[in-house]
């Protein structure tokens, strides 16, 4: 038969194609494996470099001591860890409610024309470099916090320590939080909006057909269905805010103290590393300490990732 001769002639070609396919598979598998190994590799590299101080000081001291005097060999990370957590927390408190409300509005209520204008703008702003947000922070937010918002909070809510203003400069946790919040708006809005839109139309109609108002439908049906995805959107925003360096560094004041008020200055871990890399090699153990700081950041990211996943799995499972 005709195909037999053809098959004989093309046997060589077929073998070559099969080899190419297998080679491609191996190469791709190797790259994937390398990608999986990258996380432990980064951790190991930082660990090795930080080993001189990890070896000589108890972990409890490093994490919970408030004394940071590199010249004297005192490396207490507590102020910096608190700085990171405070700024991130303030940013999320400021970012999440308006982002979600905006996402719901754009997905469920907004006329298509508004959506057609708003979404490209949001995409664009998601891409604007953090240093530009930082410039905005220095030019607009810091004076605003120092001269208007700060005194206002102090006058009306000053009895609560959280809102006392002992620092008139405006370079503060609140300024950092505002800049970060605006920075993560586009991220949370874009993802949450996609998730909300993905809820099947039939579900909405079922609720509306029972006489529910739009908001009742959103609250009881749409959000319930989209919950896991909305949480994922918030977590993406959190990751971004938590790891941000430049925008925060420029507005947060960078004073190594444990903050008591959102109007105090703080010194997040990321800022610590970025500000001091220059003299890292000239003070003994300083490089180990800074790499230790990076390791702490990485550890928090890992713990957070695992915890978030566990929580999500439980929620989605139920």
């Amino acid at each position: 038969m005709a195909w037999r001769t053809r098959e004989q002639v093309t046997a060589v070609i077929r073998q070559r194609r099969r080899r190419t396919d297998r080679l491609a598979e191996r190469l791709m598998a190797a790259l994937s494996a390398a990608c999986v190994l990258l996380v432990p590799l980064i951790a190991a590299a930082l660990w090795l470099r930080a080993w001189p101080i990890l070896r000589t000081r108890p972990l409890g001291d490093l994490l919970f001591s408030t004394v940071w005097r590199p010249q004297q060999g005192a490396f207490g990370f507590f102020p910096f860890i608190m700085g990171t957590l405070w700024v991130t927390a303030v940013a999320m408190v400021l970012a999440v409610p308006p982002s979600l409300l905006t996402a719901i509005y754009l997905a469920e209520y907004a006329p298509p024309r508004l959506r057609a204008v708003a979404n490209p703008l949001i995409d664009l702003l998601a891409g604007i470099p953090s240093v530009v947000y930082g410039v905005w922070g220095v030019v607009v937010v810091v004076p605003l916090v120092g001269q208007r918002v700060g005194p206002l909070l102090h006058r009306w809510l000053g009895v609560v320590p959280l809102f006392r203003q002992d620092n008139p400069t405006g370079y503060s946790i609140l300024a950092g939080g505002i800049v970060l919040a605006v920075m993560v708006f586009p991220i949370i809005i874009a993802v949450a909006q996609d998730v909300i839109r993905a809820v099947p139309q039939g579900l909405r109609e079922a609720s509306l057909a029972l006489g529910a108002t739009r908001w009742q439908t959103v609250r009881n049906v749409v959000l319930r269905r989209a919950w896991a995805g909305v949480m994922a959107a918030i977590m993406l925003g959190f990751s971004r805010a938590f790891g941000e360096t430049m925008a925060v560094l420029m507005v947060v004041g960078n004073i190594p103290q444990v903050p008591r008020s959102i109007l105090d200055a703080a010194y997040p871990l990321t800022a610590l590393i970025a500000n001091n890399y220059g003299e890292m090699m000239s003070i003994p153990l300083y490089d180990a300490a800074l790499m230790g700081g990076a390791l702490i950041l990485l550890a928090i990211v890992l713990v957070f990732n695992v915890a978030a996943r566990a929580v999500l799995v439980r929620w989605v499972g139920s």
């Binding site: 053809r6 002639v9 093309t10 070609i13 077929r14 070559r16 194609r17």
Partner: peptide, 8 residues
């Protein structure tokens, strides 16, 4: 093309 026939 993927079977390499055009050459043949």
């Amino acid at each position: 093309r993927i079977h390499g026939l055009p050459v043949l």
